[in-house]
Amino acid sequence: MSGPLGLGPGGVVAPPASSLRAYLPIVVASVVLALVPLSLGGSRYFLSLGVHLLVVASYAVAFNLVFGSTSQLFLCQGALAGAAAYCSVILGNRYGLPLWLTIPAGVGLAALLGGGLSWVAVSRRLEVIYLGIVTLAFSLVFTNLLLGGRELTGGETGLVVDGGAGTWLRSPAAAYYLFLALLVGHLVVYRAIERSRLGWGFRALRDDEVAAALAGVDVARAKVTAGVVGAAMLGSVGATFAAHEGFVSPTTFAFGEVDVRVLVVLALGGVGTLLGPVVGAVVVTVVDELLRPLGQLRLTVYGVVLVVIFLGFRQGMVRSVRSLWMRAGTRAGPRTD
């Protein structure tokens, strides 16, 4: 057993040694995703659906880095993305700063918050449950401050975003490729970290923190790094999404809106796998659309999916498909020899 606290998959899961094989899946996935709008004829409805898919996939890559790689249960994906988004929007609306300044500022804030949460967790040696509760409380504090700080945040109604208005950012097709680029960037960062010295440290500390520390891995630094990078990923997507939508509100980044979905996406795709977030996001988005007539019962479906995954199907789709493939390969092996 490995993965976060023995919940993840068993078996050896090292990233491929050769650079080509390591990054090939990203290339394939991005080519497929790039062709999707063309095959759907560029309908506005499908493009906006596609943007949501890419956004949730990017969030899930970040969660994969923080939870999958270093077992830190961050239940504040939405809040971190939202902090970056609101920071960027408020700087832009109030002071007329351009997006290329406000988005990085938002990302910086998110990274600071994420790193801060990791740092607090590490230095107070918080067990997973306490970090979960602290980050959940952080999410709710964030949402309630948005609701309460009416003059700054627009409260429940939210804010109209000035930055990016009337530009290509608001065009669905261009935005689709922008978010695809962000997703690919996140995947490349994820894989690069996985293959680096830091990634080795992640694997070791995920298996056993004490043994990792005794072997010389700086566990605290590794976790805080994961927190910072993951939060920066969340922030970059959140702030860019706000600029694209032209509108932010507390519900855009609410726990029930973002975190729940990200958890389902990653659990479904496979915690700790490179393409798990993408596969999970595709499945969840498609299923979500198909189940739209069910209304509130969709939540029930998500709940059941989570329960089923964590009860018996913990490896997620990417790994299950891969092991099926490999089993098929070994069965076919002797015949081809």
Binding site: M1, S2, G10, G11, V13, A14, V210, A211, L214, A215
Partner: peptide, 28 residues
């Protein structure tokens, strides 16, 4: 200063070689 614990705490997702390589990569 290296330590070997009473109850082995190994990196269960790794092969023997990878596990030892963690010590080489981070310990020195």
């Amino acid at each position: 200063v290296a330590t070997v614990m009473q109850r082995p705490r190994v990196f269960t997702s790794m092969s023997t070689l990878e596990d030892v390589a963690v010590g080489a990569r981070f310990g020195g």
